[in-house]
Design a protein around this nucleic acid. Structure first.
Lengths: 346, 346
DNA sequence: GTGAAAGCGCTAACAT
DNA sequence: ATGTTAGCGCTTTCAC
């Protein structure tokens, strides 16, 4: 079991009494080379266990076939679903993914951008952290001539294509859904407004109220981040302030969970008389005792769409590529619904 | 907004009237260089927007600071949690992650191994696909002298360290938990036995039965894969065969979900009289109307442990590194439990 | 159809 | 303290 350390083109060439150029061309099926030598070369390469060094290849070609992906979190369905979408398209197009997680920290996001650029990725896919407030490090990417596509979360001031969902419309629909059912005391647990999803979802909520003759009350909008803990503390705050809604609209699914935890621990009495709405659903919602009504976010689609846009951009850096805004719809749990893995839609 | 295409060491050197070697050393704070030139160099580098080319660096150093990770699925909590653990340790140690997904296909797994090796990753972390039956492509990694650590799922015949959980013990405990509560009619929806988790969990189930004076019945062990759809079809099969258990022990959490779906659709009457046990839990179990009792798998820990082992291996390729088997325990849902994000244990 | 030369951007070893 | 040389493994001209 010899540790056959690194067979190179040169090695093959020597054994065959030819030069590495011929070997290189043979292995890439270059028309220059005769069929017979190609065969010999390939055979020898197999025999020696040759494997090309993509580092060297990338260095000469100035192309790595690699993209960088930065997400705020990884073990949250939305992002892992998105990643799945990204991965699918990347795989089909022979790109590898370098995965980075910002943990919702702007500093980490910046440093990851730097690392990925130094790795010479061919493009970047980023969903910004909830902290991110300045666009410079993102604009820098574009300035370097590296294609960038933002997805789901974005901030202003960056010259890059974005794939988002109709945040405002979705939030509007959710709020309206509640209002239509006579639920008028609707608290919104919101995200930070520096990020689109925070701002737009809140706007959708407020617009729906207004269009139904109600006035949004700042006291009923509790601001926080996009994670479970944020939802929890938002819920605690709501309870401590003595607010008693008949519906809660949470800016993300994790936030909704946090709110539920807060209610279960601090004021379980209101639990059953409260309808939870969340922006973003979860596959397991169908097993819940109090299922949410939610705004469906096509997470995989967001990912695949973002990757597709990026591919276009990488293909033609000057193509002007338009933002994509995917539609959303309201989903209520249906007892008899086909489980997702048996369904082929979406 | 000049597209300052690729400033190199040479560029900085020329502007400063020195050589690129000095520049290189300066930027890496090599003791050779005087403080004054270091400062000048760094200043100039900033000014020109220099960013080192890791491709070139890796090529010369023969080290990429990159590891490859191959998982069967991505949008399943267990794997995204594992990834989170891997990522945490990798980040702390300045390694980047190239992420690949096998989609439970042996072919894809093989091709990813090949790609990652050609990318010159410094190490590999793999959880094998449910299809994987031959160890050659994995042994090949080790033969190439590239450190490899398997996690959660493994197969025999590979010379690599593994991080697993106590599958057999966990399965035993789950089965015993049921037996202790008077549930003796226990169906096992099992995975494939070429992979450790399939084999060992089934063994744990059978041993528990035997130790309690019962004889495992092959009719009550329904074999499939590790995903939701597998669970669904397993459940359907169980129902069609007219089997009527009082508990079901599922080899994975997704499988348990599939079984539940099958029951909900095909025979909802038995739903409430049935206790579901699953190997592997889910954070959202606490919101379920019929919560599972589950074998807790420390997913993040598996990931961080695997990455730590890999680091050791990469540090000293000849260190013989022992497998790690993490303990499991049974968790039942507790109404008043602290939500995980407020907890600081494990 | 095959090969010689040059270079991608970097660093380590060895001068000076 | 700074520079010279050489090379990592590959591919792209451009000769022959």
């Amino acid at each position: 079991m010899a540790k056959s350390n690194h067979v190179t083109l040169e090695d093959i060439a020597k054994k065959l009494g030819i030069t590495k150029v011929t070997v290189s061309k043979s292995l890439r099926d270059h028309p220059d080379i005769s069929t017979s030598t190609k065969e010999k070369v390939k055979e020898k390469a197999d025999e020696l266990g040759y494997r090309r060094n993509r580092l060297a290849q990338s260095l000469t070609l100035n192309k790595t076939n690699t993209i960088g992906v930065i997400v705020p979190k990884i073990s949250h369905t939305f992002f892992s679903d998105t990643l799945e979408g990204i991965n699918r398209v990347a795989y089909d197009n022979d790109y590898e993914i370098v995965l980075c997680v910002s943990e919702e920290k702007e500093e980490r996001e910046k440093s990851h951008v730097d690392t990925l650029l130094s790795m010479q990725v061919d493009g970047l896919l980023i969903s910004v952290s909830e902290e991110t407030s300045s666009p410079e490090h993102l604009q820098e990417i574009t300035n370097q001539g590296v294609p960038l596509v933002l997805f789901d979360r974005r901030i202003d001031g960056v010259d890059a294509a974005c794939v988002t969902v109709d945040d405002q419309g979705g939030a509007y629909k959710a709020t309206e859904h509640a209002l239509d059912r006579g639920l008028t005391e609707i608290v919104h647990i919101s995200g930070y407004s520096n990020v689109n999803i925070g701002k737009n979802r809140q706007a959708g909520y407020e617009n729906a109220l207004r269009d139904h003759g109600l006035t949004p009350d700042d006291e009923w909008i509790i601001e926080g981040g996009f994670g479970e803990a944020d939802g929890y503390w938002g819920g605690v705050e709501m309870i401590e302030r003595g607010i008693n809604p008949d519906a809660i609209f949470a800016v993300t699914f994790p936030v909704a969970l946090g709110v539920e935890d807060a209610i279960r621990r601090k004021k379980p009495s209101i639990r059953d008389s409260l309808q939870i709405y969340s922006f973003g659903q979860h596959e397991l919602n169908r097993f819940f005792s109090n299922p949410h009504t939610s705004v469906h976010q096509p997470a995989k689609k967001i990912g695949s769409e973002a990757m597709s846009l990026l591919l276009k951009r990488m293909d033609d850096p000057d193509a002007d590529i338009l933002d994509v805004e995917l539609p959303t719809h309201i989903v209520e749990v249906q007892e008899d619904a086909l489980p997702p893995y048996l369904d082929d839609g979406s």
